[in-house]
Amino acid sequence: MLTSQDIEFFVALSQSKSLAATARKLNVTPPSVSQRLQALEQKLKVKLVERGSRAISLTLEGNVLFEEGLAVLKQIELLESKVAEKNQAISGKIRVVAPVGYGTEKVSPLVAEFHKIHPLTHIELILSDTPNWTQVDPPDVVIYIGQLKDSSLNRILLEKNQRFLLASPNYLKNAAPINTPQDLLNHECLVIRENDDDVTLWKLTHKETGETTSVRISPSLMSNVGPVIKNWAVNGYGIMQRSEWNVLNEMKDNRLQVVLPEYTFPSADIVALVSSTRDKRPAKINAFVDYLKQHLSNNSTD
């Protein structure tokens, strides 16, 4: 009979590139991984894995065991969570993926504080320039900024967030006037590459008329790191498009000024992406998301 330990082992193997990688993940020797895989295949009387010289791949039967086994483990985790709720204990592993800038400045302190409140948790925070959901090794929570592309995931609003077109007073003083979106074509534009978005197509909507104008800018400077772009803008090297959360201080002390204030950009709300509805999520995930909502915004809804 297949056991939960068998499933846990095979899921860990399926999420690894090789038997050696599986051994490192499970903190055992490679021969023991190979022996356990052979025993599992003999138990089920099917071949689960194709063994290559450098990597492994799942057979059709192996893929079924991985996908269905992963669902079974989630159900077991949910059952354990519901039982644990009776004694109010929040515990277990939580994997969180977040953008580098926002994750560093705003998510990481909350992760540490949440763990301090719930010391039985083990939280892994993964920062990425392109935070997204992966089916092979799925996280528990993805923090995402901008337009949501995958509608199959549950979206929980954490923080309202606008985008602005910004430049330093010094740049604006010495540059040509900017009265319409088309004027941007004659200016130095700064671009950050993130979320695989089309970052050189700027779409601006007039606040009064509702008319939307698209401008394909040719960036003079580009980077995949937010602070680099912001420093360039503050130092007068051009115009950038950035999120409200990232530039509030610079706007307050007038190091950056809004360009074309009569126009707006598409909203870039900050959301938590999870795979299931609240009643089907483990208590640890609900508690963590609730903590983020409480400390990032008072107007979020699940």
Rank of each mutant, 00 (worst) to 15 (best):
S57N: 09
N299V: 10
R242A: 13
L110Q: 01
K106P: 04
G52P: 00
V49W: 00
L13V: 08
Y102P: 05
Q294V: 10
P109G: 09
K82Y: 06
D137F: 12
S91Y: 03
D137P: 05
R95W: 11
K207Y: 07
K252V: 13
N154P: 05
H187K: 09
N87E: 14
F265K: 05
L70H: 08
I178Q: 05
Q5D: 14
Q38N: 15
L184F: 00
I94K: 00
T205Q: 07
F265L: 13
E85G: 14
T134N: 13
L110G: 05
N231L: 14
W245C: 10
Q257R: 14
T264C: 11
S128Y: 04
K74C: 11
T209A: 10
Y237K: 11
K86L: 15
P227I: 03
K45Y: 03
H295A: 06
P282H: 01
E159Y: 02
T121Q: 07
E124T: 10
K252M: 13
S32V: 07
S14R: 04
L78R: 06
I117S: 09
N235E: 07
F10Y: 08
F265M: 12
A112I: 13
I270L: 05
K160S: 10
V271W: 07
K82P: 11
V46T: 12
T264K: 08
K82Q: 15
Q162I: 07
T3R: 04
Q135L: 15
H118A: 03
V228H: 11
D140W: 00
A71R: 12
V141E: 00
N235Y: 04
A55M: 14
S223R: 11
N87T: 14
G92F: 02
L125A: 03
E194S: 13
G210H: 06
A20F: 12
K173T: 07
N224F: 15
K230V: 11
S18F: 01
F164M: 11
M1H: 13
M240L: 12
E208N: 12
T209D: 03
W133G: 03
Q257A: 13
T301V: 13
M240Y: 00
E211L: 12
I178M: 01
L292Y: 00
Q15E: 15
Q5A: 12
H118M: 08
G101S: 15
I7M: 08
E188K: 04
Q15C: 08
I156C: 05
E262C: 09
V111Y: 11
G101P: 05
A233Y: 02
V247A: 03
P181C: 08
H118W: 00
S81W: 00
Q5C: 10
G101Q: 14
H187T: 05
T264Y: 09
F288V: 07
S81N: 06
S300C: 03
K25Y: 09
V199F: 06
E41D: 08
D140C: 01
Q182S: 14
H122E: 14
V289P: 04
A175G: 00
T59C: 04
I76F: 04
E41Q: 12
L221V: 07
Q88K: 15
V225N: 11
E194N: 09
S243R: 09
G92Y: 07
L148W: 08
E8W: 13
S243C: 07
L201Y: 01
T212R: 12
K17L: 13
E262Y: 11
R278A: 12
I285Q: 02
V259D: 02
A84Q: 14
L157V: 04
K284I: 09
L125V: 08
Q38S: 13
H118D: 00
V215A: 01
